[in-house]
């Protein structure tokens, strides 16, 4: 499948401005295809947010190129086409909701694109149903929970019919309930809507749902692969101070101590299956 986003050998050096806000990138290459959910993980200062902001031309590379459906983000004449193709969801839900009601806010993007009113209505209803917020059309944003606000922000982006959505730490300020609401929505965007989704996060355990995981450190890609491939390298993850899910850590310790578990589990259910299979087999033998 042709990638929606192609990041080619991008380096970005940052000069001036606030401290520690923006971090350099060093020769980063990455492709994201439609329907694919890519999790980009790293600490503050790893360059993950800088990478995200390259994907819709908020930043332009110092060296290298970023292509969005073949459009180079350096090409200023395509700026609005690029922003329409790649939607962005940011960390603080409060600071990206513009309007005083949910439906007005979701309509904001299509309104900017000059979409006809009846079509806006259709898109707003559809977007709200995708994020499971139908029924909240007239609600005031400040009365919603964090997870609901963040889903409204996602709906606002979906209503622009983007081919790719980049979410920059959308769960960082949410409680566990809000976090799982948003994670489920993010997964659906890729699977059901065929959108290329880039999910930037601190949390390793949020990567379990992704198709591909990219771990960043010091402006470079430190690890890349399926969640299982990445989670099977706990030594590297530990060196990077990343928080591996408890079951993964437990299975790694058990395997290191000689327990013959067949794989690196990502979820509780997987480890339960593996242990039950193993013990069941052992029980039959004895």
């Amino acid at each position: 499948m042709k990638p929606v986003i192609r990041v080619e050998n991008v380096s970005y050096t940052y000069d001036g401005g606030g401290p520690g806000e923006v971090d350099a990138l060093l020769d980063v290459s990455l492709e994201v295809a439609g329907g694919e959910l890519v999790a980009v993980i790293g600490h503050n200062g790893s360059g993950k947010s800088t990478l995200a902001k390259h994907m819709n031309a908020i930043f332009v590379p110092t060296r290298g190129d970023v292509y969005v459906l073949g459009m180079n983000t350096r090409d200023e004449s395509r700026l609005w086409d690029i922003r329409q193709t790649v939607g962005m969801v940011f960390q603080n839900p409060d600071n990206q909701i513009v309007a005083t009601t949910v439906e007005e806010d979701v309509a904001f993007g299509p309104e900017n694109l000059g979409v006809p009113p009846t079509e806006i209505r259709r898109r707003v209803d559809e977007a709200l149903s995708i994020v499971d917020m139908t029924g909240h059309e007239k609600s005031a944003p400040h009365m919603l929970s964090g997870g609901q606000k963040q889903r409204v922000a996602i709906a606002g982006v979906i209503a622009m019919r983007p081919r790719c959505i980049v979410l920059d730490e959308p769960t960082a300020m949410l409680d566990p309930v809000g976090r799982s609401e948003v994670l489920a929505t993010v997964r659906r965007l890729a699977t059901d809507e065929g959108i290329a989704v880039v999910h930037i996060t601190h949390f390793m355990n949020e990567a379990v749902l992704a198709d591909r995981v990219v771990v960043m450190e010091g402006g470079r890609i430190a690890l890349e692969g399926t969640p299982r491939e990445v989670f099977s390298q706990p030594a590297t993850l530990r060196r990077l101070d990343l928080d591996v899910p408890q079951v993964t850590e437990l299975a790694y310790e058990l395997r290191a101590a000689g327990a013959p578990l067949p794989r690196c589990p990502l979820t509780v259910a997987e480890l339960v299956d593996d242990i039950a299979a193993l013990v069941g087999k052992g029980a039959r033998q004895s």
Binding site: V98, P117, I120
Partner: peptide
């Protein structure tokens, strides 16, 4: 930044939901 990312560029050519 969020408004720009959602293609806001002033009132020119804008339509309205309502």
């Amino acid at each position: 930044m969020a408004m720009e990312a959602r293609c806001y560029r002033g009132g020119q050519g804008r339509t309205r939901l309502r």
